[in-house]
Simulated scan of single mutants.
Amino acid sequence: MKVKVKDIAKAAGVSPTTVSLVLNNRPSRIAEDTKEHILRVAREMQFQKESEIDFSEFKKVKTLGMVVPDVMSSFYHRLAEETSRHAFYQEYTVFQCYTNDDIQCFYMAVEGLMAKNVDGIIIIPPRTMDKENVKLLKSLQKSGVPMVLLDRAAYAVFCDFVTADNKHGGRIATEYLIKHGHNGIGCLVGEANVYTSRKRVEGYREALAAAKIPFDKDLVYYGNYDIESGRAGMEILWEKGVTAVVAGNDLMAYGVYLFAKEHHLSIPGDLSVIGYDNTELCGLMDVPLTSVDQNTDTMASKAVEVLLRRIEEPAADEPEPARNYYFTPYVVERDSVGVMNQSSAKRSEMR
């Protein structure tokens, strides 16, 4: 039974008016020990003060869900922020779930958002998408909840997909290093089964082929898109004679910087580096990092636009087919890429 002011007044041996003044912290001449007594009785009776806001006046709150794989990634953090901002402009609130690329967390996040009856869901899939994960996403589609995949594709899941052109990004990053005279170019990316990794390596290979530079699979290192992967990968690639490296993201690039510092190498004198994502980290490094920008704001805006169109479109026997939306990344120049010098040229010839 809900505890009322008069119940507290009876238990405390005071008037309902006195209780009301104390609970609402109104000015009065009530003695401090009486106030403490009333508050203690209220706590013991588990009194819950009613909100002063009349929520009945509000329209139905429109909500979206968003599943994000990595809370530590500046890129995903910014992508989530931009998505929420664009949704807010359209009077939608976004519930964000960070899964740390954990499959169990991914399951719980999707099921939790469905239980909350959100109007639509934006999903950045985890790195590992097995048959069970695909089955979950297909079940989500069958439930009728509109869904958009963002940044990463999911094999055999056909729905609207918004991403940067990762192949183009890998290509322009590699071309930028080639333009500066490098031909011993390594590539650091995430796991081989991740969509963004595969596409960026494809772009890397295309740029090498266009410049008539032989592709060497041993110069591609597959890691985890984290700092330690960048450092460990660079250790291996340096032994193979590379003079420049395309890093899969700015965190991996930072790992390259740590390797260079440990081995007393100069960036860009001894080693040129280009990152990916153009995060705030680029300007914080000792040598500002040249990086590929993925057009994060545009991607977020399009994901919200496409999802809201699915939510608000009238029911139809033949709905509009799912589409892929690609956005063109571009290089943001800073100071981490230099022209290949003589010592670097000799290293490259030693390969």
Score class of each variant (00 low, 15 high):
55 F>G: 07
165 D>K: 07
269 G>C: 01
111 E>P: 13
198 R>C: 06
142 K>G: 07
270 D>F: 04
289 L>V: 14
170 G>K: 06
85 R>Y: 08
301 S>N: 15
254 Y>N: 12
307 L>Y: 08
309 R>G: 03
138 K>D: 04
131 K>C: 01
49 K>L: 09
46 Q>H: 14
79 L>K: 02
296 T>V: 10
268 P>S: 00
330 Y>G: 02
333 E>G: 01
326 Y>S: 01
83 T>E: 05
275 G>E: 13
203 G>K: 13
14 V>D: 12
106 F>M: 05
179 K>H: 14
75 F>I: 03
147 M>K: 08
150 L>I: 14
24 N>P: 05
289 L>H: 08
194 V>M: 08
87 A>L: 01
328 T>L: 03
110 V>L: 14
167 K>W: 01
245 V>N: 01
65 G>D: 05
186 G>S: 08
330 Y>S: 07
138 K>T: 00
210 A>T: 00
268 P>E: 05
63 T>Q: 11
342 Q>Y: 12
103 I>F: 14
157 V>Y: 07
144 G>F: 14
30 I>V: 15
331 V>W: 07
320 E>R: 11
310 R>V: 14
168 H>A: 00
322 A>S: 12
270 D>C: 08
268 P>N: 01
325 Y>P: 01
147 M>E: 13
23 L>N: 06
32 E>G: 06
148 V>H: 15
4 K>G: 01
75 F>A: 08
161 F>M: 11
79 L>G: 05
29 R>W: 13
144 G>S: 15
80 A>L: 10
344 S>A: 15
280 E>A: 15
232 A>E: 13
270 D>W: 06
211 A>S: 00
286 D>T: 10
91 E>M: 10
193 N>G: 09
16 P>H: 14
235 E>Q: 14
202 E>P: 15
16 P>E: 15
351 R>V: 14
199 K>Y: 15
179 K>C: 09
205 R>T: 01
236 I>P: 10
193 N>D: 08
271 L>N: 07
344 S>F: 10
315 A>N: 06
124 I>E: 02
80 A>K: 10
226 D>A: 15
270 D>A: 03
91 E>D: 11
178 I>C: 09
30 I>S: 04
289 L>Y: 08
238 W>P: 02
197 S>H: 13
334 R>N: 00
86 H>V: 06
220 V>S: 12
188 L>Q: 02
240 K>N: 00
211 A>F: 01
194 V>W: 15
38 I>F: 10
132 E>W: 02
75 F>K: 09
339 V>C: 11
17 T>K: 06
114 M>R: 12
